[in-house]
Simulated assay, not measured.
Amino acid sequence: MAFESLNAFLNMGGYAPYVWPAWGVTLAVLVGGGLQAVAEHRRRLRELRRRQRRAAADAAPREAVPTEGRPTRFP
């Protein structure tokens, strides 16, 4: 084993103040990137669903408005 004890491993031969923050920043960037990708995926799905609803509403035949009982205009 490269280190004699867990304390020696965590101390990293005196370089712990440099090593562990580097690991922390790397982990934060990776997790943040994953969370951002999930959020963007959800946002795009919502936008696609909204577009589909609009397209379906535009393509649906409109209900005819009854004209019975309304005055007719002649040119």
Score class of each variant (00 low, 15 high):
residue 65 V to Q: 10
residue 42 R to M: 11
residue 54 R to P: 02
residue 51 R to I: 02
residue 10 L to I: 10
residue 38 V to E: 01
residue 5 S to W: 06
residue 44 R to E: 15
residue 3 F to G: 02
residue 15 Y to R: 12
residue 37 A to K: 04
residue 50 R to D: 10
residue 25 V to T: 10
residue 66 P to H: 07
residue 69 G to H: 04
residue 24 G to A: 09
residue 20 W to L: 07
residue 21 P to F: 04
residue 11 N to I: 02
residue 18 Y to N: 11
residue 41 H to I: 03
residue 50 R to F: 01
residue 71 P to S: 11
residue 71 P to K: 11
residue 13 G to C: 05
residue 45 L to D: 09
residue 75 P to E: 04
residue 43 R to L: 11
residue 27 L to W: 01
residue 25 V to S: 03
residue 29 V to K: 07
residue 39 A to W: 05
residue 48 L to R: 15
residue 34 G to D: 04
residue 69 G to E: 02
residue 54 R to W: 08
residue 48 L to A: 13
residue 21 P to S: 07
residue 49 R to Q: 13
residue 40 E to R: 14
residue 45 L to W: 06
residue 58 D to H: 09
residue 54 R to N: 11
residue 69 G to R: 03
residue 66 P to D: 15
residue 7 N to T: 13
residue 30 L to I: 15
residue 30 L to F: 09
residue 48 L to I: 08
residue 34 G to K: 01
residue 55 A to W: 09
residue 28 A to R: 01
residue 49 R to M: 09
residue 64 A to R: 13
residue 34 G to E: 08
residue 30 L to D: 00
residue 13 G to Q: 03
residue 2 A to Q: 12
residue 20 W to T: 12
residue 29 V to E: 03
residue 72 T to R: 15
residue 68 E to G: 04
residue 8 A to S: 14
residue 46 R to P: 00
residue 32 G to C: 08
residue 18 Y to P: 00
residue 33 G to H: 02
residue 58 D to K: 12
residue 21 P to L: 06
residue 32 G to R: 03
residue 3 F to V: 08
residue 38 V to N: 00
residue 38 V to Q: 00
residue 56 A to Y: 08
residue 25 V to M: 06
residue 27 L to G: 02
residue 55 A to F: 07
residue 17 P to T: 12
residue 26 T to H: 03
residue 7 N to C: 01
residue 38 V to P: 00
residue 30 L to A: 14
residue 29 V to R: 05
residue 9 F to Q: 00
residue 21 P to C: 08
residue 42 R to N: 15
residue 17 P to F: 04
residue 2 A to M: 09
residue 28 A to C: 11
residue 20 W to V: 12
residue 6 L to C: 00
residue 46 R to Y: 02
residue 58 D to V: 05
residue 23 W to L: 14
residue 24 G to V: 07
residue 23 W to A: 15
residue 7 N to F: 06
